[in-house]
Design a protein around this nucleic acid. Structure first.
Lengths: 393, 393
DNA sequence: GCAATACGTTGCCGCTCACAACAAACCAGC
DNA sequence: GCTGGTTTGTTGTGAGCGGCAACGTATTGC
């Protein structure tokens, strides 16, 4: 039974709301915060004082106001002093970054990912990148945690990777392994790359102010980050959004998951390469080569792209009917496929989607670029701070 | 930007939490409320005093305690005095009820639904049932509103029925029409029957304490009420959960919605009747006749049931992979089909579902019986009261 | 009849935010 | 440079809420 918050929870929520605002929207005047948050001037003053005391924000005088009246103090996130570590575990590389409050990338490292490494072997590499970056951290800084974006199903409770086709991982405790490397003062949160990218696009990308969003992310497989009613849809264990394993062809082609006819067997990398009759090593370059060939008039590539686009629209239509989203975002390889076959996607969607569900749905590509996964991973860590700024500070 | 609640919102939420508890769990001692809600004795006392003052609850001394110590006062919902009207618009009948706080059905009316009636013609019938029931309402009672359960997609904003295969309605303003009949003192809320039944099962049925639930409801078509993260998934316009129009056979049999190969063309009434080679008038009796024939060894009925069960498992597996629910509930005709073909459903689900998503999913039939739609509809109206007990009281 | 137990009631406290009055900082005009 | 108008930060006060502790009250068990 849910019970209302106590007074100190009000304070926590208001501190979080203020900090979230400057985190997402950047430096903001106190006057503007007053109107946006709907709180009193005096309350905003007290909140900023608390946050400034914890070293999370700083205040300064604005340069030029242009208007009459006393200029309002500007509240800035302490981007250089308050930061999170972000990791992205991808097919052939590992990426690490130190990201400041406000979303600025302060430092970054990248390395090739040796194939066949399990979680316990990967964690030291990630920890090593952290130690390197840690040397350049100015004194008096505050680390709020680390976030990891993984391609695969992630158990919410402890960051266990249940199944990751990209890395070949099965039940790999990357969350626990990394936590053991980093110690207790750096809380680790692990998330699916699609979830995390959806989170980032919702916070500071194309999907700002959209409370019902499907972010479709493709690499080797296809997954979705789903935001329903303004909140991330995780499902019971944290495995929600595995739309790539929605079966679209009964008893179709076998999928790595053990099932048959999964959506990703029709729109994934392998499907396109096979249909286009190519034997390139899989990867983004191979895909782009197909789209390029199609552009140049290669008939086989064209039909491959059209067919994959049709299947893309097929699955999106199903999802649109089920979720009635406001926006569908195509990320990763799905972005390329969507851009190459938008007509097929639209056509299939229009013929299969319920008119009511089609009314307000917008198809978009991500606003955040390559760094979406890293920024989203950092966002996971920042969530902890925003939930209780003074405790985590 | 979300901001924390003010003090009076705390009060509202706590009043709502207390009222919700006695509404859902029935009469409860103040001592028990103290521990369940985590509030102080004095606070519980003040809250109950407020609610009793508004006539929403009453207090009494318990009959026997069996324990030492001063017996705790029991807080009862004013079931007879505080009520909502509930309607269910079904294929061949209209049902109306007056339902007391706590979920008790105080009065009910039913009538055949003449085919071909639109919303403006139906509303007076519903209003007539209300007027009849209103004559038996004891003086000093409080009506908190009316809820309507409809088979079809419902626009959340105003209760417009966009598409209802059951009644043949297209863009029928049943919410507005009924509101015009009932006047401003009876706020009307319209909901999809599956959504509403899911809501009821989540509040007081099998899905208590399950925060990720899919309630599959079948009549002529198939829809789902989805609860994700403890909240109803409505989608952007309110059309979420149209799983019956998830396409499972590309370019398959035409569906009434204009698309082809929709799930409900494989597991709906018509599909079973066709596959079993029957020409009965569609309806629950015809379905039960098929299941009965299959039980008695009719080979054609058996294969029809098995195949439909297989398709049922197919769709459920897709939904389980997408939502990672804790529970799937089979209601309406889906209950009958599930019970008749549980083996096929399970088998298909196990072969198609991701292991991680299968781990904790439970398949269940509803706990609330025929009245689920009515109780859920009333629950829609009660939500308004529970959100702000003293204002609506 | 008495002690033990559990609970309702009351008064007080700390907390939070809203509000109003005042002080400070800026702009425009003279 | 000074004055008035404007906008904002700051400060003190007040109301509302829940927690807390002391006290009164109702029941059980001896």
């Amino acid at each position: 039974m849910r019970v209302g918050p106590s007074q100190d929870e009000i304070r926590r929520q208001n501190l979080g709301a203020l900090l979230r605002h400057v985190h997402v929207h950047g430096a903001t005047s106190r006057a503007e915060l007053t109107t946006t948050l709907g709180l009193n001037r005096s309350t905003i003053g007290a909140l900023t004082a608390d946050l400034a005391g914890a070293g999370l924000v700083s205040e300064g005088t604005p340069k030029e106001t242009g208007r009459a009246g006393r200029p309002s103090l500007v509240v800035r996130p302490e981007s250089a002093r308050v930061y999170a570590y972000a990791y992205s575990i991808e097919v052939d590389r590992l990426r690490a970054a130190r990201i400041g409050l406000g979303g600025e990338v302060l430092d970054r490292r990248g390395m090739a990912r040796p194939r066949g490494l399990d979680a316990r072997e990967t964690a030291p590499l990630l920890a090593g990148a952290l130690k390197e970056m840690h040397q350049h951290v100015p004194p008096g800084s505050l680390c709020v945690g680390a976030g990891v974006a993984v391609c695969g199903t992630v158990r919410r409770a402890d960051g266990l990777v249940r199944l990751a086709p990209t890395t070949g991982w099965v039940d790999e405790p990357i969350g626990a392994a990394l936590a053991a490397e980093l110690g207790t003062d750096v809380p680790v949160t692990v998330g699916n790359v699609a979830d995390v990218a959806a989170f980032a696009e919702h916070a500071r990308g194309v999907a700002v102010n959209c409370d019902n969003v499907i972010y479709l992310y493709g690499d080797v497989g296809v997954g979705a980050g789903i935001i329903a009613g303004g909140r991330r849809l995780t499902g019971h264990g944290g495995y929600g959004g595995e739309v790539g394993h929605m079966v679209v062809v009964r008893d179709g082609a076998p999928c790595e998951c053990g099932s048959r006819g999964c959506w990703e067997t029709e729109i994934g990398e392998h499907a396109l390469l096979r249909a286009a009759g190519r034997s390139d090593t899989p990867g983004r370059d191979a895909l782009l080569a197909i789209f390029d060939a199609a552009d140049r008039g290669d008939a086989r590539a064209q039909t491959a792209v059209r067919q994959a686009g049709d299947w893309l629209g097929f699955g999106v239509a199903n999802l649109v009917n089920i979720f009635n989203p406001e926006m569908v975002i195509f990320g990763g390889t799905m972005r390329d496929l969507y851009l190459a076959a938008a007509a097929q996607v639209r056509s299939r969607l229009n013929s299969m989607g319920l008119p009511a569900c089609l009314e307000h749905v917008r198809l978009r590509t991500p606003k955040l670029g390559e760094d979406a996964a890293l920024i989203g991973a950092a966002e996971l860590a920042f969530e902890r701070l925003l939930a209780d700024p003074l405790d985590a500070g």
